[in-house]
Write a protein that binds this DNA or RNA. Structure first.
Lengths: 232, 232
DNA sequence: GCAAAAGTGTTTGGTCTACACCCATGA
DNA sequence: TCATGGGTGTAGACCAAACACTTTTGC
């Protein structure tokens, strides 16, 4: 009676084929590891013929995108929490040559401590972003990654997203280094600090980091929430 | 043999149910009509119990999102060309209470002349944005519209997207009015002009518009393409 | 001549950039 | 005592916001 619950429309029993594309969810996970921008990639030789893939799976019915995300993340990487945001939905019918799969893509950031504590390194590889040019990926996953990288750059310039890439307390030089790594350019130390302070993005703690020659003040983010700034 | 083409996974013949959600594509269409921000909405009493909906339909397999978009737009509104961009993918299982439908949403802009020339007003209604608060919409369409409006504001502030809302030639005061309508605030005439000119967004034509008391120069956009500006 | 919209500059405060030296500590 | 990274200020250019009067035309 109703067009939507007339399920015959979506599956043709005689040809044994769906008439709709299949929705999947894929995740680009960034982290800063040893002061390199890295990706958490999925390596599954059986399924992917020795190519890399970003974690992802078919979307299960009756679960929200968030629930599907959490489930895929946990099952395929072991990681329990990341900051995530929807990236884009890719629907080119030829992106997967076996079937029309629509990829609802997310990008995510994970702090390195959290990664090392929870990730299952038998399932994933940590790969430097700069190396992906030379690696083989399944389907259109390389272009999804590049799209995510653009978004990361924007996000870093206009929000306090770096809070999800850095430890709780950090030296200002580490914050600056994070920006330099992602934006891939040198920044001026004094101007950088002025900007960050003017935005009230971080505050001093009373701790010192004595691991370098001259001890450095440690800072922490003021806002726990994601905040967008007009300028940076 | 391969996990993806094992179609049994996606349709359970015994329960006669799909095991995946259904992907659909929905479109929020903006226009400026009689100097009001308006939406092109779909009114289908049979299907929608006298509520408004944004145009949309189930995604057909083997066609790209763009092809599905064009097809839906043409069939449901008659409109032949709009500027479009992907907005977001909404996947809450309860957004449609009959089935789990994932909505890949787009927002679009159409010039009023083009709208009036091609649209099929037996299928659509033109509704002022300011009125939607008091109207009934199916599913989560009202919140999709509000999300699209936010994006429109951003787009107007940082790009030359207004070219797709205005006629080819226009008075500067009309351009300013468009900004004021969408951003919902008064702008300073002199500062507005300085900004727009500094960005090299528009250029003079040698025509005059004599429909008001004092004739006004007509301007036109320099770039045909969408261009993003760092500042506005 | 008057109503209506067009057109036009200046000042002020704030922000961005470029740039160089001293400090505290560990080895 | 030296090497390493930490910490700090200023001057000049540019940009953004506030603000009011004159001009041209139709009626």
């Amino acid at each position: 009676m109703d067009y939507l619950i007339d399920k015959k429309k979506f599956f043709d029993i005689w040809s044994n084929k769906l008439t709709i594309p299949i929705p999947a969810l894929d995740i680009v996970i960034f982290t800063i590891y040893k002061w390199n921008l890295c990706l958490v990639l999925w390596r599954n030789k059986e399924r992917f013929w020795d190519k890399y893939a970003i974690p992802g799976w078919i979307i299960a019915r009756w679960y929200s995108l968030e629930e599907n995300f959490d489930n895929i993340l946990q099952r395929e990487t072991g990681i329990t929490w990341v900051y995530k945001e929807q990236l884009y939905t890719f629907g080119n019918p030829s992106r997967d040559d076996r079937w029309h799969v629509i990829s609802i893509s997310y990008y995510a950031f994970v702090k390195v401590e959290s990664l090392l504590k929870t990730a299952d390194f038998t399932k994933i590889d940590l790969v430097k972003y700069d190396d992906i040019e030379n690696l083989d990926f399944v389907y259109d996953h390389k272009s999804i990654i590049k799209y995510a990288k653009q978004r990361l750059e924007w996000k870093l310039e206009y929000t306090n997203i770096s809070k999800d890439l850095l430890p709780k307390n950090f030296r200002i030089s580490q914050l600056q280094l994070t920006y330099e790594i992602v934006l891939w350019k040198k920044l001026d130390k004094r101007n950088f600090q002025k900007k960050i302070f003017k935005l009230h993005m971080i505050k001093e703690t009373w701790e010192l980091d004595k691991t370098t020659n001259r001890p450095a003040k440690l800072y922490t983010f003021i806002d726990k929430e994601l905040k967008t700034y007009e300028i940076l």
